[in-house]
Write a protein that binds this DNA or RNA. Structure first.
Length: 579
RNA sequence: GCGCCGGUAGCUCAGCGGAUAGAGCAACGGACUUCUAAUCCGUAGGUCGAGGGUUCGAAUCCUUCCCGGCGCGCCA
C-alpha cells in the first residue's frame, strides 16, 4: 500500500527467508520519531533463523541495502529501525498531496468493484428522529469513502412504506374522515397514527379494520393505494428537506413496496426447493442447520412481512449491481434477523449471500428524568426526539457562539450560513467520531459541544490554516527548499499526512467512518500545537521572516489544509474558511 | 436459554498482537499587544470487568464466568 514500506520490505527480503508481503505486514511505526520511522520487530524471525532477535536486528543493520529515500537502519534491541531521508520524504508527501490530491486513488482497479450500501431507510408517515442519525450519516460517509478509494458505491434508501402499520393509518384516515391526504403533514400523520393506536387498544374491531385496510392495500385496491401514495409523497418531501441539510443523497429510493408483487413467485420457488413449511398457519423456512430460529416468510393471514420483501430486494440488488459487497447499515437490534436473511438466501442457492454485510450500529437511548435509567424512545408514546429539532438547536448554538466572536468577521459575511455549517457539522462529526457499535445515551451538551474533540475543533483548525494562506500574500508553491522544514513538529505533521490513505483503508475495511474522524482529530491536535508554538516565538510562525522557510511552511500548511478539508468532506462535514 | 453489541482515568471515548496504555471533558495552575484563545502548555488521575489459556510478547487472540444494552415467527 505504501511504496516506502514495500521498498523496505523488498530490501529485507534479500536477507530473510520471508516474502516481501509478509515483511511489509510486519513493519510498524516506532513509538517516537527519534527511534526511527519504520521498525521491524525481529521476534518472529528468531525460531526460523535460530538466533536471538537482538542478534538478528544487529546483523540486518550491517547487511541490509538501504533503498532510495532511506537514510539509515539501526538496530535497537530486538528491533531494526529505519530512518527516512527527511527532506526527500517531505518532498514526496507534499508534492503528492498537492498534485494528486489527499487521497490518491492509487488503485484504479477498484473501479469495477461495486459496493451497494443501504442506509437510513426510514418508515414513511413518521418523522425522522435522532435514532435515524447514526445509520444515515454512517451510510453516507461510507459511500463517500469507498468512492474516494475508487470503488463504485451505490447508495440506496430502502424506504419502509409497507407493512401492517400503514394499514392502521389508512383505517385512521377513513375513520376520522380526512378529505385530502395529500394536504397532510408528517406531524398530522403521526398524530393520526397515535390517536388510532390508542383508541384501538380496547377496540378489537378497530384492529381488525387496520388489518383489513392493509390487506386491501396488498390486493391493490386503487382507492386504498391512492391514500397510501399520499403518505409516501408527504413523507418524502420532509425527508428530503432533512437529507438536504445533512448533505445526504441517494442514488436510488428502493421502497419495500417495489418487492411485494414478487410474493407469489417467491413462495412458489421456496416450495419447489422444499425450503418453506407450514407452521401455526404461517409459512417458515427452518434454519436448524445454521443453529438459527426459523425465518417466517408469510403471515398466517397470507400477508407479506419484512422477510418476504427483503429476499426479493436482495436478489434485485444482485441482479442489478453484481456487488462485491452489499452493506446494510441497520441497527444492532436486527443482527439476528440478518443472520437469518443470509441463511435463507444461502439455502436458496445464492452464492453471493456471504457478500452481505450487516453494518450494525448501537442504539440511541434517552435518560428518563424520573427513573434516571436510559431507555429507548418509541413513536407510539410520541416521545421521539426529532432529528430536525436537534439540527436546529445545534445551529442556534453555533449562531450564538459566532455572535460572541463577531469581531472576527467582516460586515456582510453570511453568519447564518456559517452557523449552519458549524452546528450541523458538530452533530455529524459527533456521531461519526466513535466506533459505530456502541450504544449512546443522547445528551444535548455532548451533541452540541463545540470544544475539545469535536467537529468545530477540526473546522477551526481548517479555518486557521486558510487564514494563514490568506495572509501569506502568495500562493503555496512546490518550488521550495524542503530541507527548510526541519522542526521535529514539521516532520511529525508530514508523517501524519502520509497516514491519511491508511485511515481511509481502515474505514472501508471495518466499515468504520470513525477511523477518519479520529485521524482528523489527531492531525488537528498536532497542527494546533505547531500553530500555537508560533504565538510565543515569531521565528516558529509559518509567516516568519526567512523567505525560504516561509515558503516551505506555506506548502506544508496548504497540504494539511487539503487533507483536513478532504477528510471532513468524506464525513459529510463542511469546511468553512473562516470561523 | 440462544444471538449480537459493549465493559480501558471521576465522565465520554481512542488504541484491537509488539518497544513507557492515549485523548477530550471535569479539577487544579499557566498563556490573548493573535499567522483567529471554538486554541495551546503544564499538574493530577488507570489491578485495561474477573479467572484460565495461546505467545518471546496480550487491553488487543481463544476460553469460562460476571455486569449492562438490545433482540429471539405473525413490527421492521
Amino acid at each position: 500500500m505504501h511504496a516506502m514500506e514495500d521498498l523496505i520490505a523488498a530490501a529485507l527480503a534479500e536477507h530473510l527467508p520471508l516474502e516481501p508481503e509478509e515483511l511489509a505486514d510486519l513493519l510498524e511505526t516506532p513509538p517516537s520519531p527519534e527511534m526511527g520511522d519504520y521498525g521491524l520487530p525481529c521476534f518472529t524471525l528468531a525460531p526460523r533463523l535460530r538466533r536471538a532477535p537482538r542478534q538478528i536486528a544487529a546483523e540486518l543493520q550491517g547487511s541490509v541495502a538501504l533503498p532510495a529515500g532511506v537514510r539509515a537502519a539501526r538496530a535497537e534491541g530486538p528491533y531494526l529501525n529505519f530512518f527516512l531521508d527527511r527532506s526527500e520524504t517531505i518532498r514526496r508527501v507534499l508534492t503528492g498531496i498537492t498534485q494528486e490530491g489527499p487521497a490518491p486513488a492509487d488503485e484504479g482497479d477498484n473501479a469495477d468493484r461495486t459496493v451497494v450500501i443501504e442506509f437510513s431507510s426510514p418508515n414513511i408517515s413518521k418523522h425522522l428522529g435522532v435514532h435515524h442519525l447514526p445509520g444515515t450519516v454512517i451510510g453516507m460517509s461510507l459511500c463517500r469513502i469507498f468512492r474516494a478509494l475508487g470503488y463504485r458505491a451505490v447508495s440506496l434508501n430502502y424506504l419502509g412504506d409497507w407493512g401492517t402499520s400503514h394499514g392502521r393509518l389508512i383505517a385512521a384516515i377513513e375513520r376520522y374522515g380526512v378529505e385530502d391526504p395529500h394536504a397532510l403533514t408528517v406531524s398530522e400523520l403521526q398524530d393520526l397514527y397515535v390517536r388510532y393506536s390508542t383508541e384501538a387498544e380496547d377496540e378489537p374491531e378497530m384492529q381488525q379494520q387496520a388489518r383489513d385496510a392493509f390487506r386491501r392495500l396488498e390486493q391493490g385496491d386503487p382507492g386504498t393505494r391512492q391514500v397510501w401514495e399520499a403518505f409516501r409523497e408527504v413523507s418524502l418531501r420532509e425527508f428530503e428537506r432533512v437529507y438536504d441539510r445533512l448533505g445526504v443523497e441517494f442514488d436510488r429510493y428502493t421502497p419495500e413496496s417495489l418487492y411485494v408483487d414478487r410474493k407469489d413467485e417467491l413462495m412458489e420457488r421456496l416450495r419447489r426447493q422444499g425450503l418453506a413449511q407450514q407452521s401455526e398457519g404461517a409459512l417458515i423456512v427452518a434454519l436448524d442447520e445454521h443453529d438459527l430460529p426459523p425465518c417466517m416468510v408469510l403471515k398466517s393471514d397470507g400477508a407479506t412481512l419484512y422477510a418476504t420483501r427483503d429476499i426479493p430486494a436482495a436478489e434485485d440488488r444482485w441482479e442489478r449491481y453484481r456487488f462485491e459487497k452489499a452493506l446494510y447499515v441497520v441497527g444492532n437490534e436486527q443482527s439476528l434477523y440478518f443472520q437469518q436473511l443470509k441463511a435463507v438466501l444461502a439455502k436458496m442457492g445464492h452464492h453471493w449471500a456471504d457478500r452481505i454485510v450487516h453494518v450494525n450500529f448501537g442504539l440511541i437511548k434517552f435518560l428518563d428524568a424520573e427513573t434516571g435509567n436510559a431507555r429507548v424512545g418509541s413513536t407510539r408514546s410520541g416521545d421521539m426526539l426529532l432529528l430536525e429539532d436537534v439540527l436546529q438547536e445545534a445551529v442556534q448554538r453555533a449562531r450564538a457562539k459566532i455572535e460572541d466572536n463577531r469581531n472576527r468577521f467582516e460586515d456582510g459575511a453570511d453568519l447564518d450560513e456559517l452557523a449552519e455549517k458549524v452546528g450541523i457539522g458538530a452533530v455529524i462529526f459527533r456521531e461519526l467520531s466513535t466506533r459505530r457499535t456502541r450504544d449512546v445515551v443522547f445528551d444535548w451538551e455532548r451533541m452540541l459541544d463545540f470544544e475539545g474533540d469535536t467537529g468545530p475543533y477540526v473546522q477551526y483548525a481548517h479555518a486557521r490554516l486558510c487564514s494563514i494562506l490568506r495572509k501569506a500574500g502568495e500562493d503555496a508553491s512546490l518550488e521550495v527548499d524542503f530541507s527548510r522544514l526541519s522542526l521535529p513538529e514539521e516532520w511529525t505533521l508530514v508523517r501524519h499526512l502520509e497516514g491519511f490513505a491508511h485511515a481511509l483503508h481502515r474505514a472501508t475495511a471495518d466499515y468504520e467512518p470513525s477511523a477518519v474522524a479520529t485521524y482528523l482529530l489527531d492531525l488537528c491536535a498536532d497542527f494546533s500545537a505547531y500553530y500555537s508554538a508560533g504565538m510565543r516565538e515569531p521565528e516558529r510562525r509559518v509567516l516568519c521572516q526567512d523567505g525560504e522557510v516561509r515558503a516551505a511552511r506555506l506548502l506544508l500548511v496548504d497540504a494539511i489544509r487539503r487533507v483536513i478539508r478532504s477528510g471532513l468532506e468524506l464525513l459529510g462535514v463542511a469546511a468553512p474558511e473562516r470561523m
